[in-house]
Computed example of a mutant assay.
Amino acid sequence: MGKLYLGHELTPGSRLLRPLRDSSGHVLLQTGTILTERYLELIEQWGLQDALLLAQRPSEARIYDHVTRTHIIDAVLQTTIIDQLADIFNNITSEKALPIATLRNSAALLVREIVAHKHVALDLSALRNLDEKTFTHSLSVAVFAIASGVELGLQEPVLMELAMGALLHDLGKTKVSPAILNKPSHLSVAEREIIQQHPRWGVELLRERGYQTSNVLLGIYEHHERCDGSGYPLGSSDTQISQIGKITAVADFYDALTSNRAYRPAVAPHLVVEELIANSLTLFNPDTVWAFIRSLALYPVGSIVLLDNGERGEVIGYDREMPNRPRVLVTRDTADRELEIPFEYDLMQQLNRFIIKVESAT
């Protein structure tokens, strides 16, 4: 059992027993969130330091269920979709017939596979091993988006449109110079203005080919829009952005930041999750952010991970509400020597420990 505390009375390691909401009822932090120093700073920034919160302090007992298994998307289906995307992207400006219909069939299989495993978190680690990064990103965004849509209760016809929009969201980049796309330093103002046209160009390219499905085109057009109006190409705000656009935006943001880019290395997943939560009242829709967080295995069970102190271990489970803080069975010490007696970290309790790298996936 928890108690009611004022926001400023809580300490790192406290666990929320009810969602933290703003004055409009939007969920800022979900039930089960373990409060780190960063989350406590956000509570103060949100002006909720004097709000009454039902929570448990670290010394109070708590019980929660861990996810102990995940699902990997069928490898043949992954490769098929990658090949179909390559065909479309490479031939969009030619007169060659595009396999849009066959991609739609593959997207239907992808949707059905994710729906069939909706009670098991999805493991995308295998995608990181595929060679074609551009199309791997598109597939990853589609899987993230579909899984988030399932969490939000979307029906299969809408999930299909969401999937197609996510798979084709970067199609407009075929009109951007590779020198800009692969530039290893910051873009100039002029280059940034060119990049910011790619959602518009993607829609135009499909319309020129006779493709008119509105929700698919919305996913492409709105995946860089932000709820506070700071996005592009239109600078639309919260109520002007479709649900499909909001879902695709979160999926694209996460996968882009956790992937290596020419101008920066990949950011650790737990840091990107915290960034999403921190921006869930400004850049992103909070319900969409939490649906995303609940749906996927950020650190799949069975993964070998490197901790910030140099120890290594295997992920053995995690709380579905906080997948960025799993349980890790430590098997090697800081000098990479095998331990005679392994021991466990529960990163929801050990707040001074965190994963810096996945060394091998399941």
Rank of each mutant, 00 (worst) to 15 (best):
G2H: 05
L4Q: 09
Y5Q: 04
Y5N: 03
L6A: 07
G7C: 10
H8Q: 10
T11Q: 05
P12G: 07
G13N: 08
G13A: 12
S14Y: 01
L16A: 04
R21K: 14
R21A: 01
D22M: 06
D22S: 06
L28I: 11
Q30I: 04
Q30W: 06
T31A: 03
G32V: 04
T33I: 00
T33P: 00
T33M: 01
R38G: 05
L40Y: 01
L48M: 07
Q49V: 06
A51Y: 02
L54H: 00
L54G: 00
Q56R: 04
Y64L: 04
H66M: 02
T68A: 06
R69W: 07
H71V: 06
T80G: 03
I82Y: 00
Q84W: 00
F89D: 00
F89N: 00
F89P: 00
T93W: 02
T93M: 07
S94I: 05
K96I: 01
K96C: 04
L103N: 01
N105V: 02
S106P: 00
L110I: 07
R112Y: 09
A116T: 08
A116K: 08
L122Q: 14
L127M: 14
R128K: 02
E132L: 11
K133T: 14
T134L: 12
T134A: 10
F135A: 14
F135N: 15
T136R: 05
H137I: 09
V141P: 07
V143F: 14
V143S: 13
S148R: 04
E151I: 10
L152Y: 06
L154N: 07
E156C: 14
V158S: 15
L162M: 10
M164L: 15
G165Y: 02
L168Q: 00
L171W: 13
G172D: 10
V176L: 11
A179D: 15
A179K: 07
A179Y: 14
L187Y: 09
S188Q: 05
Q197C: 13
H198M: 03
W201Q: 13
W201P: 06
R209Q: 11
Y211C: 07
L217K: 08
L217E: 08
I220N: 05
E222V: 06
H224N: 13
H224Q: 13
G229W: 11
S230H: 01
G231D: 03
G231E: 05
G231C: 01
D238K: 14
Q240I: 10
A249M: 12
A251P: 15
D252Q: 06
Y254S: 11
D255I: 02
R261C: 10
R261E: 13
A266H: 12
L271G: 05
E275C: 12
S280D: 04
S280N: 15
T282S: 14
R294I: 12
S295N: 13
L296E: 00
L298W: 11
P300F: 13
G302F: 01
V305Q: 12
L306Q: 14
L307Y: 11
N309L: 13
G310F: 13
E311N: 09
E314G: 03
V315F: 08
V315L: 08
D319L: 07
N324R: 12
R325Y: 11
P326E: 02
R337P: 02
E340C: 10
E340G: 15
P342Q: 02
Y345C: 06
L347P: 06
Q350T: 11
N352H: 15
F354Y: 15
I355F: 03
I356Y: 04
K357H: 15
V358T: 15
E359K: 10
S360C: 12
